[in-house]
Design a binder for these strands. Structure first.
Lengths: 217, 217
DNA sequence: GGAACAATTAGACCGGGTGTCTAGTTTTTG
DNA sequence: CAAAAACTAGACACCCGGTCTAATTGTTCC
């Protein structure tokens, strides 16, 4: 599924009206390729031409699509944030399942995603958070917001779980959600290290045990 | 506390018997400086001369002290592992306190450590785990071992906690310890991102609540 | 047909860095 | 005083970084 397109050898100058994929499409391909690379290697140790080359876009064109590497990064963050927000919704709003089962399914899906790339790719947001000290300061707030967004969606599902008695009403869903995401990022890190999904599984198992323990009181 | 030593301007050739700090001392200074830099920026985006310069050792000397950057990294990992193992022992074996209190103190200390460097430095092992896909494969096993070592020490303290009734005997200390360290790494990441110790505190608070919930059953 | 404008990219800018190693200088040893 | 040991200058041989201007090609509209 490499996005590499050895295509037609690109000519200079304005492309004929039809032959070229439209601006938006190329831009999109760049973002896609950027995500693939940055989820694996982070931001600072990746050069733009690695991404450019993987899409078959000449280096000179980069600034036609993005003002700088920094704003490219910003766009990757929000694309990734959105991508996951949608994924979360797809799972967590599926009311054919009990709320906790929805979370379980989400986790399963994410874990399969990592396995599919041999545990080389992790979470973009986690990666960048980790290397924050090497990053443009503008990334910080954005990354924080993404976490908050994911957490809000998760908390809402946990509230549903409380409503139907799957989780004790005494627990704070927001705290639980923050907890979940903090732990999850740690688990992703260990999964990359061990090249195995076990850390992910063990972490989530523990998380559900926690919910259960309280429910049982 | 920067290790920079503008010292005497180093002369070429073999130094007189006394005047120079001995081999081991310089080596040590390099390791110390390496830790400071790598805990902040990781391995792959740091060049050796940044470290060399901060200690005032000329670039040409590096290979006198270490065979390569890779083995330098290996040595940093084990130095850091040991450093933390000792710190853990200092706290977790202090039997003037209850086992859980010991853990609390350790966490407090680690959290102050991060604050002291304005949340720019994190955990070396976590940093490297995160960038595993950019690292020499030889690091993987070593990093894993460090985690296991830390976990074992933590588990042992949790067993003490069970012995004196602070933690329910039904829980598995090893699982709890792995859990703790997974979550902790996640919390460190968030602390760097938010430049605040709150993620650390919120995570540990949750961890202790978990232990308590089970104890209360 | 041809000017004006829009879209795209070649190619170089310039400065930086990478890890490594050899050849050399200086001291100590015997 | 020769041989061995301890240390380092300086260069090697790259490959790279992000950025931007000037050139090229297509379209539009008269």
């Amino acid at each position: 599924m490499s996005t590499h397109t050895p295509d037609r050898p690109r000519r200079r100058g304005r492309p004929p009206k039809d032959s070229a994929r439209p601006y938006a499409e190329t831009r999109n391909a760049l973002i896609q390729a950027g995500l693939a690379v940055l989820t694996e290697k982070g931001y600072s140790s990746v050069g733009i031409d690695e991404i450019l080359r993987s899409v078959g876009v000449p280096k000179g064109s980069f600034y036609h699509y993005f003002k700088s590497k920094e704003v490219f990064g910003q766009e990757l963050i929000s694309a990734y944030g959105l991508y996951f927000a949608r994924k979360l919704d797809r799972f967590l709003l599926d009311d054919s399942l009990s709320p906790l089962t929805r979370i379980r399914h989400f986790v399963q899906d994410a874990s399969q995603g990592m396995a599919r790339h041999d545990f080389r790719r992790g979470c973009l947001i986690g990666n960048l958070g980790q290397e924050m000290s090497l990053l443009p300061e503008s990334f910080r707030a954005q990354l924080k917001e993404v976490f908050e967004d994911w957490q809000a969606r998760t908390a809402s599902c946990l509230r549903d779980a409380q409503a139907c008695g799957e989780v004790a009403a005494t627990l704070d869903p927001d705290q639980l959600a923050e907890w979940f995401w903090t732990g999850w990022e740690g688990a992703v890190l260990r999964a990359k290290l061990e090249a195995s999904s076990e850390p992910l599984e063990r972490f989530t198992e523990g998380f559900f045990q926690l919910l259960q323990a309280h429910a049982g009181r």
